[in-house]
Simulated scan of single mutants.
Amino acid sequence: MSPAEPVAAETGHRVVCHLGELLEERGMTLTELSDLVGVSIVNLSVLKNDRAKAVRFSTLTAICDALGCCPGDVLTVEPASRPQR
């Protein structure tokens, strides 16, 4: 089973959030990020744990500004799983 399959099975999409890794690399907590971007810890946790169904561009922009990164660092799309032959 590829990493994309569990995400797609649970959420119906292949978008993966790398917020946890980005926070860890920067030694930052979700609480600190919440304070910087003005988004609740609960909503950031939903995003971080790949349970979000949508994200506002303003939220994504604020996250990128706070973490010094680009949207492609926060979110990626996993390749579609291909049937095995």
Rank of each mutant, 00 (worst) to 15 (best):
N49G: 02
C64K: 12
T31P: 05
E24M: 13
L67T: 14
I63L: 14
L67A: 11
H18K: 12
R26D: 09
A66Q: 08
L47P: 01
A54P: 00
H18L: 11
A62N: 03
D50V: 01
S58L: 04
L47C: 02
M28N: 05
S40C: 09
L23M: 10
L30Y: 00
R56M: 08
T59P: 00
E21S: 15
H18T: 09
E32S: 11
C64W: 11
D65K: 12
R56T: 05
C69M: 12
V37L: 06
G38A: 06
T61K: 15
S58W: 04
L22E: 13
A54S: 14
V37E: 09
A62T: 02
L60E: 03
L67F: 08
I63F: 11
S34W: 05
V16R: 15
S45C: 05
D35S: 13
L22H: 15
S40E: 06
C69I: 11
V46K: 07
C64V: 10
I63K: 10
V46A: 04
T29P: 03
A62H: 02
M28D: 00
L22D: 12
G20N: 14
L30A: 04
A62L: 01
L47E: 03
A62K: 00
V16A: 12
V39I: 06
F57V: 13
T59E: 02
V55F: 05
K53S: 13
T61N: 15
T61Q: 13
C69L: 13
L47R: 03
L60F: 02
V39K: 00
N43I: 08
S58D: 05
D35T: 12
V46P: 04
R56K: 09
E32C: 06
C70Y: 08
N43P: 07
C17W: 07
C70K: 15
I41P: 05
E21Y: 11
L19Q: 09
T61I: 04
G68T: 09
L44G: 01
V15Y: 12
C70L: 09
A66E: 09
G27E: 09
L30F: 03
F57I: 13
I41A: 09
A66D: 05
E24L: 12
S45V: 00
N43G: 11
N49T: 06
T31C: 08
C69N: 14
I41N: 13
L67I: 13
M28W: 10
S40N: 06
V39Q: 02
R26Y: 06
A52H: 07
A54Y: 07
D50R: 00
L19G: 15
I63E: 10
S34I: 00
D50H: 02
L30Q: 01
V15Q: 12
V42H: 14
M28R: 14
K48C: 06
L19S: 14
F57W: 11
L33G: 02
L23H: 08
L47W: 03
L22I: 11
V15E: 15
D65G: 04
L23Q: 07
L60W: 04
S45N: 07
E24G: 10
L23F: 07
G27S: 09
C64Y: 06
E21D: 13
T59N: 01
N49H: 08
A62P: 02
G20V: 03
V55E: 04
R26F: 05
I63R: 14
E32W: 03
R51W: 00
V37P: 06
A66W: 07
L47T: 04
A52P: 04
A54K: 14
F57M: 15
R51K: 06
T29Q: 01
D50E: 00
A54N: 10
